[in-house]
Design a protein around this nucleic acid. Structure first.
Length: 853
RNA sequence: GCCGGAGUGGCGGAAUUGGUAGACGCAAGGGACUUAAAAUCCCUCGGGAUAACCUCCUGUACCGGUUCGAGCCCGGUCUCCGGCACCA
C-alpha cells in the first residue's frame, strides 16, 4: 500500500497462474477426434539463442492474444511451440566457449522455455519439438531420400555463394547485394559440389497458387512473384555462319528481332572452349575471359562498365539471312535463359551502350506512333510503337508484333515459345557440423546412393570437440566410414549437412503429431489440423522461409504425406521493434546509461552530452535495446504484453517508449483498483436483464465494448481493442452506483473488463476473477453481446449544410426520413446557404443529414 | 530504374463500406487530496480570429478532379520506407 492505493503485485500473481496453466494442461490441443472446429495458431518458431529480445515478446504476444481468444470462442486450438535449433551460432559458441553445440543448444532451449513461461503464453507444451533431435530430423532424411528417388534432389558441381565467415555455401536467397544476410560480409564465389532441391519444377505452381492465398499480405505475395520472376518469351535459333551448329537466344522482345545487329553471350557458356581453340588471338581472348570471370567472382557492384570481345564467329539472322557478329559480353548472365542474347541496340539500353563502345550498327525498327525518332539516337528507345525497317512487318504495332514475329519464327521452325524463371534450384548443402546430416553415401563401386530407410536416422554425433572452423564431421572416421547399402562394400558418408531452412519447412506438420515414431506424422492428424489458420512472423522471411515451406508442402503432398498443397491460410507479418540509439565519442551507449533533461540526453556517469540516433531496429550492436527480462521484473509480463500490443498495429514498426510502458502499467493498476474496490458488488450482483434510466449508458457502453473488442481482435487491431477497454474503464470510474440496477450494471461492466482484457493481460485478469469469485477465465467463454443493450431510444443526427457541420439534433430512434427533413427545414440555416433557399436534403439514416442550397 | 506500401496534433496512433477528423495512450498545462512530495482522482489540450461563452475561419504531404459530402475514390507531383535490380 502506498498512499492508500494498492499497487498490484505482479511478482506474486504471474508465477502463480503460469504454474497453474503449466500443470493443468489446459491449453493442450485435443486432436482430430474433438468435435469442436479446429484453429491452428502458429508463430514462427525461434532460434534458441538463449537471449529473449523484444521482437520475440511482440511476435509471441500477438499470437497469444489470438490463441486465447479462439480458445474461449470454443475452438479446438492448436498453439504449439518448438525450437529451430540447428544452425551456426551453436558452432560459433562452441569454438568460443569450448562447449559442444548440442549442450549449448539444449541449455539455451531450457532458458528460452522459462522465458516463454514467464510471459504467460498459452502453448501446448506437450507438443514441444526441437529440430536438432534425431526424432525430428530422421524424417527429414527420409523425405530427402524419397525426393532423391523421384529426381527432386540432385547433386551438381557449380559456382556457389560462399560466405567466408559462415565457412559455408549460401542459397541465392541468403545473399543480399553480394552480402551475407547474416554477417554482412562479402560473399565469394566458389565452385563446389553440392545438393539441390528442384524447386524450379514447382515454379509455376508456386506462382499460380499465390492468387489463392487471400489471407496473405499483398507485399509478401508480390515479393514472391518477383522472386520467382516468370517471363514469357521466345527462343530463337541463330545458325553459325561457318558450321551447322545453332546458338539459341531467349528474348521477351521478338518484336525487335529485325533490329538485331549482333549477338552477345556469357563467357561461361559451353561454346567458349571451342571458340578458344579456333581463335587466332587465343591469348587475348583467354585474358578477356579470365578478366570477366574474375569480375563475376569478385564484384558486388552490379553497375560495372560493359565490356565485350569478338568471338571470331558470325551467326545468320534467322529472318534476314544477314551475318551478325557474336560477342562475349561481361553483362550476359550465364545462368538465365540460354546464356546467349540477341542484341538490339536501338531498343535496349545495355545493347546500345555496348554498340556505342564497339562501334556496332544501330538499326531502328520501332518508332513512336506520332513522331519520328531523331537520329542518331542518344539512348535506346524502349517504349512501344510501330514497326519500321522490318520488311513485311512494317506498320505493325510493336505489342502486336511480339506475337506476329514470334509466330512467324516458330512457323519457320526457327524457334519456340519459352518461359523462363528467375528462381533457381535450392542449394541445400552446408559445409557445417550442426545440421541434419544428408543421408547419402558415396560408394566407389555404386556411386552416390541413399542410406537405407531402416538405418535412419543418420545420427549427428553430439559429443564433439571444436578445434577449428571446419566441420568436425570431416575428421570423424567413426561418422563417415560406413558400408554401401547396395553392395555392402566400404563406403563413405556425405559429411555436409542440410540448410536449416529445410527443418523449418515442415515443423508445423510435425506439431500435429509430434510423438509419432513410425511415420513423420499421421496423415489424418495433419490433414485435420492443417493448414495453419494464422501464421505470424517477421517480414524478413517473406521470400526464403515462406517460399521454401510452400514448396515443401507441395513435395509432401506429391509424396503422399499430406492432402493439401498450401501450408498457411492467413499470414501476418509483424513489424520490427525500434528505438533511438545513443552514442558519444566512445561509441554506443545503452539506454540505462543515459538520462533525459529538457529534451536532451546526458550520460549518467559524467553528465556529458549524448548524441541521439535515428529510430531503428533494436540491435545489440547499436545498444538500442531494452531487455525484456528487466522489463518483466519491473512491470510484469502483463504490462510488457499490453504495451507491445497497444503501441502500434502489429504489422507496423513499433517505437519503444518507456513512458508508454508506464501508461500501460498505470492502466492495469486502474483496473486492479476499481475491481478490488468493488469486489462485493461484483460478487453479489448478477448481470442486469434490462436497464432503463440511470445506468443505461454504462450498460450500453459495456456491450458496445464487448462487440468492438471481438471484432478488433479478429482483424488484428489489438491497439484499438485495448483502447476500447480503456474507454470502458474510464466510463466505469464515472459511475458511482447507488441503486441495485446501477450496481448490477457496474458489476457487469467490471466483469466484462476482466474477461475482455484477458487475452492481452492474462495473469492480472485471472487473479481479479478469482478475487471476485468468478470462474477461471480459461474456462469462461468470451463475453457475448446483449443486443437489447445496443438498442437506442434516441439517435443523434448531425446536420451539415453544404457538407459542413453546422448543427446536431436528437430524434426518437424510429424517426422517418420525412420527419428529419421537416425538422431541418423548420430551422433557419439561411446564412449558410449560398442561394438562400434549400434545394435538396440528403439524409443518411441514423447518422447525418446534409442540407444543400 | 522497376514493383509494392505509407505520409493525419508536440509524439505513438484512431476514424471497418465516401458520412461529426484527431478515439485511446504519451507528453504538456491546470485543479483536488497532502505539512510537502510522490502516487491517485478530475479537467483542458490541432492551428487561427474573438475580451469571452456561443461562434466563425482553417486544417489529414502538395496540385487538380469526381461527389450533396473526400483522410478515404480518380489523375498528376513531392517525400519517406520496404523489396528487386544488367533476368534480355
Amino acid at each position: 500500500m502506498i498512499g492508500g492505493t494498492m499497487l498490484y503485485e505482479h511478482k506474486k500473481i504471474e508465477p502463480k497462474w503460469q504454474k497453474k496453466w503449466r500443470e493443468s494442461g489446459i491449453f493442450e490441443y485435443k486432436g482430430s477426434s474433438d468435435p469442436r472446429p479446429k484453429y491452428y495458431m502458429l508463430e514462427m518458431f525461434p532460434y534458441p539463442s538463449g537471449r529473449l529480445h523484444m521482437g520475440h515478446v511482440r511476435n509471441y504476444s500477438i499470437g497469444d492474444v489470438v490463441a486465447r481468444y479462439y480458445f474461449r470462442k470454443g475452438f479446438n486450438v492448436l498453439h504449439p511451440i518448438g525450437w529451430d535449433s540447428f544452425g551456426l551460432p551453436a558452432e560459433n559458441a562452441a569454438i568460443e566457449n569450448k562447449i559442444p553445440p548440442a549442450k549449448w543448444t539444449y541449455a539455451n532451449i531450457d532458458n528460452m522455455r522459462e522465458r516463454f513461461h514467464q510471459l504467460g503464453f498459452s502453448y501446448d507444451w506437450s507438443r514441444e519439438t526441437a529440430t536438432c533431435r534425431p526424432e525430428y530430423y530422421r524424417w527429414e532424411q527420409k523425405f530427402f531420400i524419397e525426393m532423391f528417388n523421384r529426381g527432386l534432389v540432385y547433386k551438381k558441381n557449380s559456382e556457389v555463394n560462399w560466405c567466408p565467415k559462415c565457412n559455408t555455401v549460401l542459397a541465392n536467397e541468403q545473399v543480399e547485394n553480394g552480402i551475407c544476410w547474416r554477417h554482412g560480409c562479402q560473399v565469394e564465389k566458389r565452385k563446389i559440389e553440392q545438393w539441390y532441391f528442384k524447386i524450379t519444377d514447382y515454379a509455376q505452381e508456386l506462382l499460380d497458387c499465390l492468387d489463392e492465398l487471400k489471407g496473405w499480405p499483398d507485399n509478401v505475395k508480390e515479393m514472391q512473384r518477383n522472386w520467382i520472376g516468370r517471363s514469357e518469351g521466345t527462343y530463337i535459333d541463330f545458325k553459325f555462319a561457318d558450321s551447322d551448329e545453332t546458338a539459341t537466344v531467349f528474348t521477351t522482345r521478338p518484336d525487335t528481332l529485325m533490329g538485331v545487329t549482333f549477338v552477345s553471350m556469357a563467357v561461361e557458356h559451353e561454346f567458349t572452349a571451342k571458340f578458344l581453340e579456333d581463335a587466332p588471338n587465343r591469348a587475348e581472348m583467354q585474358a578477356f575471359i579470365d578478366e570477366v570471370k574474375r569480375l563475376h567472382l569478385e564484384t558486388r557492384d552490379e553497375n560495372y562498365e560493359k565490356k565485350g570481345f569478338f568471338t571470331g564467329k558470325y551467326l545468320i539472322h534467322p529472318l534476314t539471312g544477314e551475318k551478325v557478329p557474336l560477342y562475349f559480353a561481361n553483362f550476359v548472365l550465364a545462368g538465365y535463359g540460354t546464356g546467349i542474347v540477341m542484341a538490339v541496340p536501338a531498343h535496349d539500353q545495355r545493347d546500345f551502350d555496348f554498340a556505342q563502345k564497339y562501334g556496332l550498327p544501330v538499326k531502328v525498327v520501332i518508332k513512336p506512333k506520332d513522331r519520328d525518332l531523331e537520329l542518331p539516337l542518344t539512348e535506346a528507345y524502349t517504349e512501344p510503337g510501330v514497326l519500321v525497317n522490318s520488311g513485311m512487318f512494317d506498320g505493325t504495332g510493336s505489342i502486336e508484333a511480339k506475337k506476329v514475329i514470334s509466330d512467324h519464327v516458330i512457323k519457320e521452325g526457327k524457334g519456340r515459345i519459352g518461359i523462363n524463371y528467375r528462381l533457381r534450384d535450392w542449394g541445400i548443402s552446408r559445409q557445417r557440423y550442426w545440421g541434419t546430416p544428408i543421408p547419402m553415401i558415396n560408394c566407389p563401386k555404386c556411386g552416390t546412393v541413399p542410406e537405407k530407410i531402416e538405418n535412419l536416422p543418420v545420427r549427428l554425433p553430439e559429443n564433439v570437440e571444436f578445434t577449428g572452423v571446419t566441420s568436425p564431421l570431416k575428421d570423424m572416421p567413426e561418422f563417415y566410414e560406413t558400408t554401401c547399402p547396395c553392395c555392402g562394400g566400404k563406403a563413405t558418408r556425405e559429411t555436409d549437412t542440410m540448410d536449416t531452412f529445410v527443418e523449418s519447412s515442415w515443423y508445423h506438420m510435425r506439431y500435429c503429431d509430434p510423438k509419432s515414431s513410425d511415420v513423420p506424422f499421421s496423415r489424418k492428424e495433419v490433414d485435420h489440423a492443417m493448414p495453419v489458420d494464422q501464421y505470424i512472423g517477421g517480414v524478413e522471411h517473406a521470400v526464403m522461409h515462406l517460399l521454401y515451406t510452400r514448396f515443401f508442402t507441395k513435395i509432401l503432398a506429391d509424396l503422399g504425406y499430406v492432402g493439401f498443397r498450401e501450408p498457411v491460410r492467413n499470414l501476418l507479418t509483424q513489424g520490427m521493434v525500434c528505438m533511438e540509439s545513443y552514442s558519444n565519442d566512445s561509441g554506443y551507449l545503452y539506454p540505462d546509461e543515459v538520462y533525459k533533461k529538457d529534451g536532451k540526453y546526458y550520460t549518467i556517469s559524467d553528465d556529458s552530452p549524448v548524441n541521439v540516433g535515428r529510430v531503428e531496429k533494436m540491435s545489440k550492436s547499436k545498444k538500442n535495446v531494452v531487455d525484456p527480462l528487466v522489463l518483466i521484473d519491473k512491470y510484469g509480463a502483463d504490462t510488457a504484453r499490453l504495451f507491445v500490443l497497444f503501441a502500434a498495429p502489429p504489422e507496423k514498426d513499433l517505437e519503444w517508449s518507456e513512458e508508454g510502458v508506464e501508461g500501460c502499467s498505470r492502466f492495469l493498476s486502474r483496473i486492479w483498483n476499481i475491481v478490488t474496490a468493488n469486489e462485493e458488488i461484483i460478487r453479489n450482483f448478477a448481470d442486469p436483464e434490462n436497464v432503463e434510466g440511470s445506468g443505461k449508458e454504462l450498460w450500453a457502453k459495456t456491450h458496445e465494448t464487448i462487440k468492438k473488442v471481438g471484432e478488433e481482435i479478429e482483424r488484428f487491431h489489438f491497439n484499438t481493442a485495448i483502447s476500447a477497454v480503456m474507454e470502458l474503464v474510464n466510463a466505469a470510474y464515472k459511475l458511482k452506483p447507488e441503486t441495485d440496477t446501477e450496481k448490477a450494471v457496474l458489476a457487469q461492466a467490471l466483469r466484462s473488463i476482466i474477461l475482455l482484457l484477458n487475452p492481452f493481460a492474462p495473469h492480472i485478469t485471472e487473479e481479479l476473477a478469482e478475487i471476485c469469485g468468478m470462474k477461471a477465465i480459461t474456462e469462461t467463454p468470451f463475453p457475448t453481446v446483449d443486443e437489447k443493450a445496443l438498442v437506442k431510444d434516441e439517435i443523434l443526427v448531425v446536420v451539415q449544410v453544404n457538407g459542413k457541420l453546422r448543427d446536431k439534433m436528437n430524434f426518437p430512434a424510429n424517426v422517418t426520413a420525412a420527419e428529419v427533413e421537416a425538422a431541418v427545414r423548420a430551422k433557419d440555416y439561411s446564412k449558410f446557404l449560398k442561394s438562400g433557399e434549400i434545394k435538396k436534403v440528403v439524409y443518411i439514416p441514423g447518422k447525418l443529414v446534409n442540407v444543400v442550397g
